[in-house]
Design a protein around this nucleic acid. Sequence first.
DNA 1: TTTACATTCAAACAAACGTTTGATACGCTT
DNA 2: AAGCGTATCAAACGTTTGTTTGAATGTAAA
Lengths: 212, 212
Amino acid sequence: MMHEAGTATEQTRARLLDAAREVFSQHGFQGATVREICRRAEANVAAVNYHFGSKDGLLAEALNFAPLKAMQLANIEAGGAPEMRLCLFIRDFMLMLLDETNGSLPCRIMARELADPTPALDKIVREAIAPLHEFLGELLREIAGEKTGEAELRRCMHSILGQCLYYRHSHPVLQRLHPRLRYDQKEIAAIALHIADFSLAGINAISKPTAK
Amino acid sequence: MMHEAGTATEQTRARLLDAAREVFSQHGFQGATVREICRRAEANVAAVNYHFGSKDGLLAEALNFAPLKAMQLANIEAGGAPEMRLCLFIRDFMLMLLDETNGSLPCRIMARELADPTPALDKIVREAIAPLHEFLGELLREIAGEKTGEAELRRCMHSILGQCLYYRHSHPVLQRLHPRLRYDQKEIAAIALHIADFSLAGINAISKPTAK
DNA sequence: TTTACATTCAAACAAACGTTTGATACGCTT
DNA sequence: AAGCGTATCAAACGTTTGTTTGAATGTAAA
């Protein structure tokens, strides 16, 4: 009756999810309208409620934490010095946040939801952000050493995440200030490298305070 | 006929502006409703359109760049080493972004608008953000020295602003992760000090690259 | 073919939105 | 007191929102 891969039903579901990810990442949950999502998916307005129950349900299914988790796993398996792994993490994270050719729109949706709580935020925090913080906390612990306090380490983590997210959150502003700027992969890599250098120096200063 | 300070008309205008600043800073421009603003201001729904023409007009008048400019001016007049002035700037900026007792809600409204363009964003960028970037750019130039490239210096500026704005943008998330956390003035000062230390070390690493 | 069920569709729904209207109340000058 | 312009108000306006409905369509088993 249904449920074979590639069946018409599943195609509509998939088109709706793709369109939803685009519109949600562009306009946020509040700014996105069911009608625009359906228009892009070439589906009827009722399709969202039929397949996902509600706009909330569509958001919940549109989210996908797999790329973020896969990135963390690959980072751990990459091995090497923790400083190098931090460098790698920042670059991969920035690519997910900024690279248009990167398919991981869910990460950009999550970035939008940070400031604007929706019914899905609790799930996002529980399943994506909390593990990310744990992963990054352990990585920074390796770099900063055991003597660094928990609060200082957490603030270093916030400093790094803040730098990364800034380029996503402030993108409309930065585009107005520097209209020529384009976020191609080369520019993203350069920014990531800056953040890594900047942050490693910061961590060192925090973890090994030198008397003046 | 009217326009004397303290007249009933001006009181309604003032109440509307106060309420608008609260609601806009809490829910953003899209999320805020004219009806809630009027309810808090104890005014009729039509009052917004009568006094400000539209919801857009209310936002435009609710914005106030004076505190941000005053802060920059005070910073310049304070004098002292540029490193110390950066420290001062970060603390004042964080207080405007986070301190509940601080009356400068416009700064928090602007922080929300960064990610979500509204008709007022162009004016915000032109009159508040661009001057802020110029001010901070000059301050960082003093710290980093003449040899540092323009792009590197701008990235350092983004690193600092990103760290500061993170605590505002990610507040809903951080509150869920650390429910006990409260942003009193002591905590804000501690965070500001961290960002300053972290960033000064970062700037030094960028501006005076040391061969390994 | 007939039956049963899942999916799609145009249309309508109720609620909330920003805004407008026309009447009423107020404050001032004459 | 009369007249005039401003401010306030309840009510309604026209849109847009997410959602629901009931009929039409497609698909696969009986």
